[in-house]
Write a protein that binds this DNA or RNA. Structure first.
Lengths: 335, 335
DNA sequence: ATTATTTGCTAAAACGTTTTTTCAAGTTAA
DNA sequence: TTAACTTGAAAAAACGTTTTAGCAAATAAT
């Protein structure tokens, strides 16, 4: 099968201990002669030796590896985060493996367990709403991890999240500053706290501006499997019956079908309805008219979470909870 | 540290071999009594035992794991493929780990090597253009893998790719059928064969329709780090100076800035310029006017590549090269 | 000329599993 | 009653590393 250290030992006539020491760059500090070192290195190339990390990690007790569990791989937000996390982790000598849970609790749990069984040194997790028990297990097992974007009540864990309340507030405030008074948003039927916080920010901004909260302007929708037809009828009714003049979209997944509807029925943006969307999206600027959006601090989130995770891996047991504000509102206008 | 089989052995007063047999469901076939089996299973729960896959895999010689190396994680195409691959692999009892190379040869090589060092049972690879040597190494080492989307000349390896030539031909034929005669496309400066094939398809369609190939309508651009400004000036010049009446976009990455330009300068689509884009994109249909696109057989690609990979893992050494046609042209019109 | 130190390398245990072989005790057959 | 099985479980080797302790030979110190 694959070439092992034993093969190199045989090839060079040395012991496997000597070979291992050289291969790990501990040759000179272990009083291995230059000649021997060179001989091993030549053999390594000649035989095309590749270390078996299963064996190496088993013995060493760590893998230099991080698992990133994402709730939705098709969300550009997470992908950008993943890309930066990978780069940052590499700076510290860690490889990152990615896995997607499709917002499915069971899958999320399975992916985390899978990573743990393969003994990743730590995890970064964008958890699904029902995965709190796995998270608690990780805490009990003292496995280093950082929650990203999603968080839980009564769970004391490292986390890097957005200021969902503040950002939503800002978004709605923006709409109000544009003279909008009947502002709609979809309220998700989910336990995910960050969605609740967005809703709270929405309500607070209304209140602080003397606008009464109208439940009819916040139709509830399921968090998963959103039916575009349902969104379409909501959007139409909101505009036609409820006289909505502004939309605050809390996610890409509600923004997309809503915008499609707005375009399809040729509602004028922003003349007839103003729109702010929470998640930024590279395609928004390609739409005509392009869509105003909250810019998320993706870079910071990624950098911070890697920092925290590696600190935890290195034994820091102090829990840190970082809340990042939305960077700004990127205003875009029709051309 | 973590609970091991040894702990269960101690807890139950049994030997580690007995515990292992029970844990692997080989209790009854190994003549372990019902009582003992139950005792072990209770201990497993009580101690919250999780197997160490490093040790298990080291001993067993396989990991039940597949590595998926993607050239660009931010490309929706690959993400959709990844999602389906994951689902299919799970059906066969395999876990999939994902890694992105950002179209960087060195990174691609490193990720593949990393997977190999962790002894994944097989790989699915959307290779970067300069990664041919790693691929050849895999062949030499007899490591099962399937090339996806990207392929190489003179490399005899399992692969699942699109019919790039035929699809491009189809796209250009579509534009011609709409009465277009001056059709532009960007020609990538890359060694990636599938891009060359698309270019050939473009040329062939022109030729078969008696349209002379005009090099000035196919400005060369770098494969990486596309400057939107460069695209913008190309697009403008193509329309204003070269009287282009149709665009065939070979990738998302050229389509996006081009469309942005078309929108920004308010060229009428499709009245003034017709557009077909190679890669499908969920956001195209949200643009106004929405964009006509070639629909790629993502599902088939994923399913087929997993099938082939698992067959290879199971010892099938016959090389299979699958070429899938684009499903259809999804025509979309302005509302 | 002996003892002490350094040099260069190896032996062996350990990491946590899996799996084959072995073994004692109980059961059945003759 | 003894030989031949069967049952239930354990011992031990193996997977490919890493790392500590150790050991002989060479060199240095006294």
């Amino acid at each position: 099968m694959a070439i092992t250290i034993k093969d190199i030992a045989q090839y060079t006539g040395l012991s496997i201990s000597t070979v291992s020491l050289v291969l790990n760059g501990k040759g000179s500090t272990s009083r291995i002669s230059e000649d021997t070192i060179k001989k091993v290195q030549e053999a390594e190339l000649a035989l095309n030796y590749k270390p078996n990390m299963l064996a190496s990690s088993l013995r060493k007790g760590y893998t230099n590896t991080i698992g990133f569990v994402v709730s939705d791989v098709s969300n550009p937000f997470f992908i950008k985060v993943a890309s930066i996390i990978e780069r940052e982790a590499a700076n510290f000598g860690y490889s990152v493996f990615l896995a997607g849970s499709d917002e499915n609790d069971e899958k999320c749990k399975a992916m985390i367990q899978n990573f743990v069984n393969f003994r990743v040194d730590g995890l970064i997790i964008a958890a699904t709403s029902g995965s709190i028990n796995v998270i608690n297990q990780l805490i009990n097992q003292k496995i280093p991890f950082v929650l990203l974007d999603r968080y839980f009540k009564n769970v004391n864990a490292n986390s890097v999240v957005m200021d969902n309340y503040g950002s939503a507030y800002k978004a709605v405030q923006y709409l109000i500053s544009k003279g909008r008074k009947r502002i709609a948003t979809f309220s998700y039927e989910t336990d995910l706290l960050h969605m609740h916080d967005r809703m709270s920010g929405y309500k607070a901004a209304l209140k602080d501006n003397g606008i009464r909260f109208d439940k009819r302007l916040t139709p509830p929708i399921p968090f998963l499997n959103i039916d575009p037809m349902v969104i379409e009828s909501h959007v139409r009714e909101l505009i036609e019956v409820r006289n909505v003049d502004g939309f605050f979209f809390q996610t890409n997944r509600t923004a997309m079908p809503s915008l499609q509807t707005l375009f399809h029925y040729q509602y004028k943006i922003p003349e007839q309805v103003s729109v702010v969307s929470y998640h930024d999206n590279e395609y928004f600027k390609l739409m005509s008219p392009s869509i105003t959006a909250l810019v998320q601090p993706i870079n910071e989130m990624a950098v911070k979470s890697i920092q925290m995770l590696i600190s935890a891996i290195n034994g820091n047991t102090k829990i840190d909870k970082v809340v990042l504000p939305a960077l700004r509102i990127e205003e875009r206008v029709s051309v």
